[in-house]
Simulated assay, not measured.
Amino acid sequence: MAVLGRAAAPDVVARLRPQLEKLCQIDDPTDPQALADAATALCGGVPAAVLSVHDGTIVAAAAAAALLGLPAAPPDALARARHKYAARRALAAAGLAGPRFALLDSAEAAAAVAERVGLPAVVKPVNGSGSNLVRRVSDVAGLATAYRELAAASPGALGGMYDRKLVDPDTETRLDPTRVFLVESMLTGREYSVELVLRDGEPEPVLVLDKFLVDGDHFECGFCWPPLDLTADRVTALAGTAAAAARALGLDRTLAHVELYDDPRLGPTVVEVNAGRGGGQLIGPLTAVATGVDPRAELIALATGGPRPQRAAPTLPPPLATLTVFGAESGRLVAIEGLDEARDHPDVISTVVATAIGEHLDHSYETFPINFLVAGLETRAELSQTYRELADTIHLVVEP
């Protein structure tokens, strides 16, 4: 059963209806009471769980579950993780290494913020997701320009995720995510991610992945396991930092996908904590076959208050990787060419198409159109070559 906002695209609703026993739409899917009422009506009584894995409604779903007396991740902790400025404060208070950071509320404030944070720097929405609208800047003029670009692009982006005021769970102050952005000093080094299961107050690092392929927009196109050229002590340090970050934010009874740099100066440093869900693309299936831990089963058990799911033995040996191919153009998808040939690639284990004909595709990374799980590639060169071959094979045909 599912609850959607009334603003959901008609093609999305039509695609979901055949997959669900019941579906209803409400005016505001970020309203916890409205979600609780809709879930109760759908089930004819109190449901076993209210759960979302969409970044824009994860906090609301947890709050709705709490209203109904159901097991749930602490809504304030999820809100703290989603509020990147509040998260930075919490991580710093816990003594974790991090970049300098500040809020930017106008282009005119760029010089003062640059002096406080330092340059080069990264500018991002305070509650963004998936590297959406992230900008890297090297001077004050670039920071001012980035502010204007984000202020112009954020209204309506990511399904309207920035259009509502954002409440800081610790100070109860409110800000407008379409007018106030987070600026952080630039981290350097290699990028990694850690998948966590949080149960009974204890974070369990399940998998450490190498972000071996990041595109020009700073978005992840490929993750691999085990991490390339990384010693066991560095893997342990990254996992430990991810777990410490989850504790600092107060997370429990949920999953988290933690993104980090192994910065040469700071050491393992958190970029962000995506709480309430596991990693996107095919990180969930990769985690299941690599470790025997099924993130979906874990999340459902945590949301319903059930025991820890029985864990299977790993089914595929390392090395494994997940690759995502994006289109080169924006527009309405009218055809996917080359998919059968890509599925037949000797390195491909499985393929997941996460888009549909008629869907609008652009470069905001709201969808991960074509995803591949690949095996047997041991070096960065081999992984990059296979990615190029798959990207060259797939053609997403769009109407502008």
Rank of each mutant, 00 (worst) to 15 (best):
125 P>E: 00
172 E>S: 15
378 E>F: 00
161 M>L: 15
109 A>W: 03
230 L>S: 11
362 D>K: 08
60 A>Y: 06
238 L>S: 10
287 T>F: 11
312 A>I: 13
400 P>H: 13
29 P>G: 03
230 L>M: 15
393 T>W: 12
129 S>W: 14
29 P>M: 14
193 S>V: 09
325 V>R: 00
157 A>M: 02
112 A>I: 04
183 V>Q: 13
19 Q>Y: 07
261 Y>Q: 11
176 D>L: 10
313 A>T: 15
223 F>P: 00
145 T>Y: 02
363 H>P: 07
27 D>T: 04
84 K>F: 04
288 A>Y: 12
324 T>C: 14
237 A>P: 05
35 L>G: 11
202 E>K: 12
63 A>W: 14
348 V>E: 01
151 A>C: 14
254 T>Y: 08
357 I>Q: 12
89 R>A: 06
141 A>Y: 03
388 R>W: 10
335 A>S: 07
233 D>S: 08
273 V>Q: 01
357 I>W: 09
93 A>T: 10
353 V>C: 07
16 L>C: 00
58 I>W: 05
379 T>R: 06
148 R>C: 09
5 G>H: 07
140 V>P: 00
166 L>F: 03
267 G>C: 07
188 T>V: 05
246 A>P: 00
282 L>A: 06
168 D>T: 07
65 A>Y: 15
356 A>C: 11
6 R>A: 15
19 Q>F: 13
114 A>W: 11
138 S>D: 13
390 L>M: 03
107 A>G: 02
255 L>Q: 06
324 T>H: 03
214 V>K: 00
249 L>R: 09
105 D>V: 04
195 E>R: 06
364 S>V: 15
291 T>P: 10
224 C>F: 02
213 L>C: 10
186 M>G: 02
146 A>H: 00
346 P>L: 06
286 L>R: 15
76 D>G: 01
27 D>H: 05
272 E>M: 05
388 R>Y: 14
133 L>T: 00
55 D>G: 11
92 A>C: 09
381 A>L: 14
100 R>H: 04
316 L>F: 09
39 A>Y: 02
373 L>M: 12
90 A>V: 04
279 G>C: 07
265 R>A: 11
222 G>I: 02
1 M>F: 08
352 V>F: 08
126 V>K: 00
162 Y>G: 05
334 V>S: 06
312 A>W: 08
128 G>F: 11
278 G>W: 06
271 V>D: 05
66 A>E: 14
344 D>E: 15
334 V>R: 06
40 T>K: 01
236 T>D: 15
66 A>I: 08
289 V>Q: 14
47 P>Y: 09
75 P>A: 09
141 A>P: 04
